[in-house]
Design a protein around this nucleic acid. Structure first.
Lengths: 188, 188
DNA sequence: AATCAATTGGAATGTGCGTTCCAGTTAGCC
DNA sequence: GGCTAACTGGAACGCACATTCCAATTGATT
């Protein structure tokens, strides 16, 4: 992270950076919104130039916003694993992950073609957390041992995102996905 | 003997439409290609205007190309179900669907934001074919009865596309997906 | 061969972006 | 309160596209 507070920058610059970030985050949660620099600037009450300058480019802005959103998700995965049995943790996390993605589907649309280092790192951490869940569940004998935890984690990461994108309305699809997935992951 | 089967259009217009369509299809199969009107025109040896005019717009061109590519996939699904047991048909089709998508990942990238009626219809047909497989397998008692075939079909449609997108290299991921999915679909 | 409507290439136009620039404003320091 | 460098808004610019336009060409009909 570049700066916590100040860093030699003027107070208004720091404040505006926060405004722009908040606006971008808000837009990511708004269904049907378009994440353009202009839209962020309007929502933040700033000029387009100010928004770009605060982050050095649109990519960095999106990166900051998305990773800010993703952070609690990763933390939640860790918490669940620490507090619950791995199987239950995985089931609950899957449901929450899909719900999160459903209400922020702009995220996955933005991921294409942009360079988002922080987001990429965080996504890897998320996969890693799932991998730990799988590994723990496997030690308990409740997840099949003929597939590598890493492969399963990636599998879940990819497919869950896809399910989330098209289950904005139903919820039935998400439930079916979790059911099939959890059953398919059990030792056969 | 002047008009070909093309509604009174001139022979060169018909020929050029075919050239543009072939070029678009070729580009969809080329990794890393960009599907712009200009790119299609260059590959077809035509002017940009000619390409657009032949279809009335880029959307219609992409729609024609994608649905042309999707057609044999749907046919294959029907064939498999007619010639093999439903469970085996589903397993083989899943593998082929993912392989197809892997080598045409531009398709799913183009699907966003464009209006593609023929493609939408064909995709629905594909889901319908999978639904029939599931229904048949369920009658045989090899697929769980607590989930609706329609839901399972959509589930497969969405998740398979996602797996395909990120399994361009490995193949390991696709195998794991099929294994987990098939096991998860069995009566528990 | 002559005629003419259909068709063509590719330059011009329109659009939606991100980015850059700059005259004016403001925060921070004496 | 002044001075100065940082910062701001938003217009101007650049870029990547799809689309439209039109003078030149070509297929079809006679």
């Amino acid at each position: 992270m570049s700066t916590v507070a100040g860093g030699g920058r003027r107070a208004d610059a720091v404040r505006n950076r926060k405004l722009a970030l908040d606006a971008a985050i808000a837009l990511l949660s708004e269904p049907g919104a378009t994440l353009t620099v202009e839209a962020v600037a309007r929502k933040a009450g700033l000029g387009a130039g100010t928004v770009v300058r605060a982050f050095g480019g649109k990519d960095a802005l999106v990166d900051a916003a998305v990773s800010r959103l993703l952070q609690p998700v990763v933390a939640r995965a860790r918490d669940l694993l620490a507090q619950t049995g791995p199987e239950q943790a995985l089931r609950v996390f899957l449901a929450e992950l899909i719900a999160f993605q459903s209400s922020h589907h702009l995220i996955s649309e933005q991921l294409g073609g942009l360079d988002l280092p922080a987001t990429t790192t965080l996504r890897a951490e998320l996969v890693r957390a799932v991998e730990d869940m799988i590994a723990a569940a496997r030690r308990d004998g409740v997840v099949r041992a003929d597939l590598e935890p890493e492969v399963i984690a990636v599998l879940i990461g990819e497919s869950a995102f896809a399910i989330a994108r098209s289950s904005t309305t139903s919820g039935e699809l998400a439930d079916a996905y979790i059911t099939v997935m959890m059953d398919g992951l059990r030792p056969q």
